[in-house]
Amino acid sequence: MAAFAANRVGESIALYDKMIEANPASKPYLWQRGLSLYYADRFADGAEQFAADVAVNPNDTEEQIWHLLCLARQQGGSLEAARKSALKVGTDRRPVMRAVQQLFLSGGEAEERELAAIARDGDVGSRFYAALYLSLYHESLGDQAAAEARMREAVDTDYARGGGRSDPMVELARVAMQRRGWQ
């Protein structure tokens, strides 16, 4: 993950692959590898990684969403087409992630407004996660301007600048900014 956080995505994949080579049973638990695969534009491999994770952790909402993102990118940017292959997961304990899940699975305006309200008014961590996933949602729809604005919002939250700095998803947001040229 340190290589990924330094925007050395190819190196991070090679390191994860070495871990899998040394211990094949570890593959389903390396969800961070899926993030690296996504930002390396290896969407089929990323979808496979996230599906393997959900197979051993059937309550993993974030991996369900990343799986959808990978499928959407594979299918020409169609989140609607990807939804037909959505992995089934349990209910996330975090309200923000339940709202994210509803948005990605339905794509409704009401769900987007609900998540935008969390990004504006939620607790410190929820504001970050809501903005992050709104960015990814807009990116999946091809709306780069909205995706950039929401990612900037995510990295500017108190969570990203403070106590959440070591959260892998904060590192992901920073890498996304770099890889998309939004720095």
Score class of each variant (00 low, 15 high):
N7K: 00
Q49T: 08
E80W: 04
F104A: 14
R120A: 14
F50S: 12
Y129G: 14
A145Y: 01
G142P: 00
N57V: 12
S126E: 09
T91H: 05
E171D: 13
R73M: 15
A154F: 08
E112A: 12
A145V: 13
M169G: 05
V96H: 10
A47Q: 10
E109G: 14
A145G: 02
Y129Q: 13
D60G: 15
V155T: 12
V89C: 15
L68I: 07
T157A: 10
M1E: 03
G90A: 09
A160I: 06
R98M: 14
E62F: 04
Y133C: 11
S78T: 02
A176P: 06
W66K: 05
E21G: 07
Y39H: 06
A51M: 06
A173N: 09
L136C: 08
A160M: 04
I118C: 12
R42H: 05
S126H: 04
D60Y: 14
I20G: 02
M1I: 03
R180D: 01
R161S: 13
S140K: 12
A3M: 10
D41N: 03
I13K: 00
E62G: 08
G77M: 07
K27Q: 04
Q49H: 02
R120L: 08
Y38N: 11
G162I: 07
L141D: 05
G34H: 01
A176M: 04
Q102Y: 08
D53P: 08
V100M: 03
S36R: 00
Y38P: 04
Y159M: 07
E80N: 08
R42T: 06
Y39K: 00
V175A: 09
R161K: 11
A25H: 03
R127N: 14
D92E: 08
M177L: 03
Y133N: 14
M169Q: 07
N7F: 00
A6Y: 00
Q75P: 08
R165L: 05
S140W: 11
S166C: 02
S106G: 15
A44F: 04
M1N: 07
M19R: 05
D123K: 07
K18C: 06
R94A: 15
G125E: 09
D92M: 02
E114V: 14
Q102P: 10
L30T: 01
K88S: 13
A5S: 12
A99S: 15
T157L: 03
Y137H: 06
S78F: 02
L15D: 09
F4C: 08
G77E: 08
A110K: 11
H67K: 13
N23G: 06
V155F: 00
A44W: 02
W66P: 06
L68H: 07
E80Y: 05
